[in-house]
Amino acid sequence: MDPALTDQIIRMAWEDRTSFEEIEKRTGLAEAEVIKVMRRNLKPPSFRLWRKRVSGRVTKHRKLMKARMGR
């Protein structure tokens, strides 16, 4: 994978407002593939911190955001 694309994916994955759906639209990588990129390119403590941060985060998952707004 191109290092510039890897950097872009990592940057978007860390951003709170960029959903996994938006990352997939821009890069073609699904959530599981983004997780693999993050696992390969971050140090283990950083990866664990990122996973804890994005797990269940409404803004990272469009479906959760829509469900929450529909209340």
Results as ranks from 00 to 15, higher is better:
residue 51 R to A: 15
residue 64 L to W: 04
residue 62 R to N: 14
residue 11 R to F: 13
residue 32 A to K: 09
residue 49 L to P: 01
residue 63 K to H: 15
residue 30 A to L: 12
residue 3 P to M: 00
residue 1 M to S: 03
residue 47 F to V: 04
residue 42 L to V: 06
residue 5 L to P: 00
residue 1 M to C: 04
residue 43 K to T: 03
residue 44 P to R: 10
residue 23 I to L: 07
residue 35 I to L: 08
residue 45 P to I: 09
residue 65 M to L: 15
residue 68 R to G: 09
residue 11 R to P: 02
residue 53 R to G: 01
residue 64 L to I: 07
residue 6 T to C: 12
residue 31 E to S: 08
residue 67 A to F: 15
residue 67 A to Y: 15
residue 59 T to G: 02
residue 33 E to K: 08
residue 69 M to V: 14
residue 55 S to M: 09
residue 64 L to V: 03
residue 36 K to Y: 01
residue 34 V to G: 03
residue 57 R to W: 01
residue 65 M to V: 04
residue 24 E to T: 08
residue 6 T to D: 09
residue 19 S to A: 08
residue 28 G to Y: 03
residue 52 K to W: 09
residue 47 F to P: 07
residue 30 A to R: 15
residue 44 P to N: 05
residue 49 L to S: 13
residue 1 M to G: 10
residue 59 T to L: 11
residue 12 M to H: 00
residue 58 V to P: 01
residue 38 M to V: 09
residue 59 T to Q: 10
residue 30 A to W: 08
residue 70 G to M: 15
residue 67 A to R: 15
residue 8 Q to A: 11
residue 21 E to T: 01
residue 66 K to G: 06
residue 25 K to V: 03
residue 22 E to P: 02
residue 26 R to Q: 13
residue 44 P to D: 06
residue 44 P to W: 10
residue 64 L to D: 02
residue 24 E to R: 12
residue 18 T to L: 11
residue 62 R to Y: 12
residue 3 P to I: 00
residue 1 M to L: 08
residue 60 K to F: 06
residue 37 V to R: 08
residue 46 S to D: 14
residue 69 M to A: 15
residue 44 P to Q: 11
residue 7 D to N: 00
residue 31 E to Y: 06
residue 67 A to W: 14
residue 58 V to C: 10
residue 7 D to F: 00
residue 30 A to V: 12
residue 7 D to H: 00
residue 49 L to D: 13
residue 38 M to E: 07
residue 13 A to Y: 01
residue 24 E to V: 08
residue 57 R to E: 03
residue 4 A to G: 00
residue 36 K to E: 13
residue 17 R to H: 12
residue 56 G to E: 10
residue 38 M to L: 13
residue 18 T to K: 13
residue 47 F to N: 05
residue 11 R to E: 13
residue 46 S to A: 13
residue 15 E to L: 07
